[in-house]
């Protein structure tokens, strides 16, 4: 099982992300439909698949309820964060008042 808090980078763009909640099934996070690599891993330049080139925004979280998986984008890119060929969905966080 992948570690919560593990960091990944895209092979198709500049995106970086933290795996906040790992998926329940085997596999690694993807960006633009291509497997991401661990932050200290080697990147082989690749191209985002059509339909998965919708991008990701820094500071936003992306989730799949079905997989119980969630990622935090820490560096923006042109590929969509996803898993097993499907894009994760942007979490529309309800803005909470600051309480600390």
């Amino acid at each position: 099982m992948l570690k919560p808090g593990s960091r990944w980078k895209s092979q198709v763009c500049s995106a970086e992300a933290v795996l906040v909640r790992p998926p329940k099934i085997d596999g690694v996070p993807q960006c633009g439909g291509v497997d991401m690599v661990p932050m200290d891993g080697e990147v082989a330049a690749a191209t985002a698949l059509a339909g998965l080139d919708t991008g990701c925004l820094v500071g936003k979280r992306y989730r799949s309820d079905e997989l119980a998986m969630e990622m935090l984008c820490t560096k923006a890119g042109t590929g969509a964060l996803g898993f097993a060929g499907t894009a994760l969905e942007l979490v529309e966080a309800k803005k909470l008042p600051s309480s600390d």
Binding site: G5, V58, G59, A93, S98, S99, D100
Partner: peptide
């Protein structure tokens, strides 16, 4: 636990959501 604290932070606060002039 780390998970207790970070789950609260990530779910209730936006990463880099503050403006430069903001201060707590």
């Amino acid at each position: 636990r780390h998970e207790n604290l970070t789950s609260y932070v990530v779910q209730t606060v936006e990463f880099l959501g503050a403006d430069e002039e903001d201060a707590t």
